[in-house]
């Protein structure tokens, strides 16, 4: 991607942009190309969904942005993550610590592994408030109870003294959201926030996130593999495949006028389920092994539209001509 193209990705109200992010993992078997040149940006107040199958690099992208990749084995090899005019990948740890939580907060899929089992949930929320807002003691406790009420935890005052194991999965995820929002972050990154929950509880959490967004106006980056959640929540969608972004568009275009054959494939398999008499359209094969990604376009071995050039040259990630902010990585886009 040329510098002028990079400029074009940034729009006036961009709050975060990721440019050419490369994160590899160095393991005994070799080098895993987990994230290979990811470009994306997030606009103020929107919900951007990063969508892909397991192992496509969507979580590694999010963790790399906050420099939370365990090293070794992982390493962010290059790229820029621009937030408030600063590059998160090239700043001091002490500076970055001020941005984590307050500027950008993160909630993870499995709340039990993010909560400390030996502390009450109230104390854990208080810790986040004390560290980030400089208030202490009784005031912080009041604030923590207010946060528990905000995420609709019934009997917040008594729940304050509960330990994580005393709460159900849905409640724990609410506590995680309360903790993340306690610092009033500008950006909330939610990595599969509802994947481990039942549908009726998932619906509650999704509704809660929508309400909080209206009330607080947080910008959300939602990482998920569930296209139902995407259709319900997202304004814009970035689709990832095998460590690369293959398409970015508004949510309506993704579902009704996709540009990349992979996007079309996954949307079709979901939409076709409605019609029992219809045989499902299949994307043949499996996602590639990122130890040794295929030459050319990474989707070419599974693509029905692949031609000679797709097997030889990796397509650039470029703006779709005449479109409003649509980007695709394909030699022969479908639009």
């Amino acid at each position: 991607m040329s510098p002028s193209q990079v400029e074009a990705v940034q729009q006036r109200d961009t709050v975060l942009s990721v440019k050419n992010l490369v994160t590899h993992f160095f393991i005994r078997e070799g080098e895993v190309h987990a994230v290979d040149g990811v470009n994306l940006h997030v606009e103020k107040g929107e919900t951007l969904a990063i969508v892909g199958e397991s192992g496509c690099g969507k979580s590694v992208t999010a963790l790399s942005m906050l420099r939370l990749i365990a090293s070794p084995p992982g390493k962010v090899l290059s790229g820029n993550v621009i937030f408030q005019g600063q590059d998160l990948l090239h700043m001091k740890q002490s500076q970055l610590r001020k941005i984590r939580g307050k500027g950008i907060a993160l909630i993870l899929q499995e709340p039990m592994s993010s909560l400390n089992p030996s502390w009450t949930i109230g104390r854990q929320i208080m810790e986040a408030i004390e560290l980030n807002q400089g208030i202490k003691g009784k005031e912080a406790k009041e604030k923590a109870i207010e946060m528990l009420k905000l995420v609709r935890i019934p009997a917040a005052e008594s729940r304050f003294n509960n330990y994580p194991h005393e709460l159900s999965g849905g409640m724990k995820q609410r506590v995680m959201i309360a903790m993340a929002l306690a610092c009033r972050p500008q950006i909330l990154i939610a990595d599969e926030p509802t994947a481990s929950l039942d549908v009726t509880i998932q619906a509650q959490i999704m509704e809660l996130m929508k309400q909080l967004k209206r009330e607080i106006g947080t910008t959300v980056i939602l990482i998920t593999h569930d296209l139902g959640v995407v259709a319900e929540m997202a304004d814009r969608v970035t689709i990832m495949y095998a460590g690369q972004v293959v398409e970015t568009a508004d949510v309506f275009s993704i579902f009704h006028n996709p540009a990349h054959p992979y996007t079309r494939g996954i949307v079709r398999t979901i939409m076709d389920l409605k019609d029992k008499n219809h045989r499902l359209e299949v994307i043949p094969g499996d996602p590639p092994n990122l130890l040794n990604p295929p030459p050319g376009c990474r989707f070419n071995p599974r693509c029905a539209f692949a031609k000679e050039i797709c097997r030889e040259k990796d397509p650039d990630y470029k703006r779709v001509k005449g479109s409003d902010g649509r980007w695709v990585r394909c030699h022969f886009p479908l639009i």
Binding site: A203, D226, E232, M271
Partner: peptide, 15 residues
């Protein structure tokens, strides 16, 4: 409660 895989069909629902 199952989210519908079509952004055109977003609707308020009873949770």
């Amino acid at each position: 409660a199952v989210p519908i895989e079509d952004p055109r069909l977003r609707r308020p629902r009873e949770i």
